[in-house]
Design a protein around this nucleic acid. Structure first.
Lengths: 258, 258
DNA sequence: CCTTCATTTTGTAAATTTCACTAAATAGGA
DNA sequence: TCCTATTTAGTGAAATTTACAAAATGAAGG
């Protein structure tokens, strides 16, 4: 949605192209220098921060929709998005608090109370993790701001999005043991210390340094390279990279890390 | 829905009481004598077996809806239902194959192609496990038959319900290591052999008998009673029961069995 | 009272994980 | 050139967990 006309058409006639009553919300985690971050947006017509979300086109699968939504809202694409839970409490969206004035000011469209967007909505939660330094978020027409926040210093979130973040974090941490999700957060070639720090940050706890890489290597996921990296007056660490083939298999079929 | 009139009203005006475009489908696993079973229904207006499913009332939470749906369709209540995945492929429901004739014959209502029930639907999957001998399934108005099937001898299922069963089974087995789901499938007091057989059946693999109880007891989940059960000309096994308090905590917060 | 047999416990070897410690590598500075 | 601070990487003993086998238990029936 780039133009005012497109926004207007979406609000008035969107129910033809999109499935009403169902939305997708995405918890995009970002990793940078041992800090876990979360991408939040501030919509024009909602007074507070929330997860980037949107509606599903009638021709899309859920994952396709989730990817498009993140791309539209934030400019970040090509994520490995994972469903974590669907939220449907009748009170979750707090339709009662719908503010006609605010919507008009933000969109220039008179939205009546029987508009398809104002009805009860059930939301499917997706999460992804990405290297946040690679992705500079860019808000679109509907969103005013789009920003990374430290995971342990989030602002108050709208609707039931705090619960969503909690669930997303929990699912991400469980799945970290079953899928090699770390791929996108690291440079192509990385050291054991880097991947170790990544996993500790994502899990939010200490991991044994000497055993941890062994498992990844034993599974064939990690390949040791002949190169080293120079890090000043210290021993140079070896560089590693993922075995693309084994990695893709593991993403598809799952492995057991722990 | 007990009467024809109620069915008719549901078909024609249900969108007022229920959230359109979203449904719930439930994989109800049953355990009996070391066999894992699945509850399937045969709807009047669909030519084949499928998971019991239904729509969500605008006043219900998702779990409440899932419980009501299972109760209405099968007569089985009070289940510990767990969400496992939401399905939204645009082709999953195969609306094109909608058979007006069959619907009319089954319900006595002329259903047009623009009826709310015929539109694209996204379905939220729930699963539960129950002691199948306790629950005699009873089909309702809309369902013709309702029957338990051995898990490794299922009939061909409609829509995407085969994939749903696969996912439900997978989630159930993963969660079995993190939550003591076995509660409802056993009598209040049970022997080690019984709970051991239960876990082996649910997981579909062998578990070591000598190490298995140690974990449950070490976690404090299991209490040894002073009673024994008489089983003929053999050593009488001790009876155990779950520690209700620890059990509830484990259900809420999760534990690690393996 | 002795046999039978499923239950339950015990024992032990193998495998795995944990943890502390040591060795190796590096480049700047003495 | 050699020493030092610092970080990576490997080693092996100790602790724990798992796998498997065998023995002990005890209730009923002959």
């Amino acid at each position: 949605m780039k133009t005012d006309d497109e926004v207007k058409d979406f609000i008035l006639n969107g129910y033809r192209e999109y499935v009403p009553h169902v939305s997708i919300d995405c918890a995009i985690f970002g990793y940078h220098e041992q800090q876990l971050k979360l991408l939040l947006i501030k919509l024009k017509f909602i007074d507070g921060w929330c997860l980037p979300g949107g509606y599903i086109k009638r021709t899309e699968t859920l994952v396709e929709a989730a990817n498009r939504i993140v791309m539209e809202r934030t400019g970040i694409g090509n994520l490995f998005l994972q469903q974590f839970k669907t939220f449907g409490d009748p009170n979750r969206a707090r339709i009662n608090e719908f503010d006609e004035e605010l919507w008009f000011k933000a969109t220039g469209v008179k939205v009546s109370k029987d508009n398809w967007l104002i009805d009860q909505t059930i939301s499917i939660g997706f999460y992804a993790i990405t290297d946040f330094s690679k992705a500079e978020p860019q808000p679109d027409m509907m969103s005013e701001k789009c920003k990374w926040f430290d995971i342990d210093n989030l602002p108050k979130l709208e609707f039931d999005h705090e619960e969503m973040v909690k669930e997303a974090l929990h699912t991400m941490r469980v799945q970290l043991y079953h899928y090699p999700i770390g791929y996108n957060m690291l440079p192509e070639k990385f050291t054991l210390t880097e991947i170790h720090a990544l996993y500790e940050t994502l899990l939010g706890k200490k991991l044994d340094i000497s055993n941890f890489p062994k498992k990844l290597i034993a599974l064939g996921l990690l390949k040791k390279l002949d190169e080293k990296r120079s890090i000043g007056p210290h021993r140079s660490p070896h560089l590693y990279m993922f075995d693309k083939e084994k990695y893709n298999m593991a993403i598809k079929e799952g492995v057991v890390l722990s």
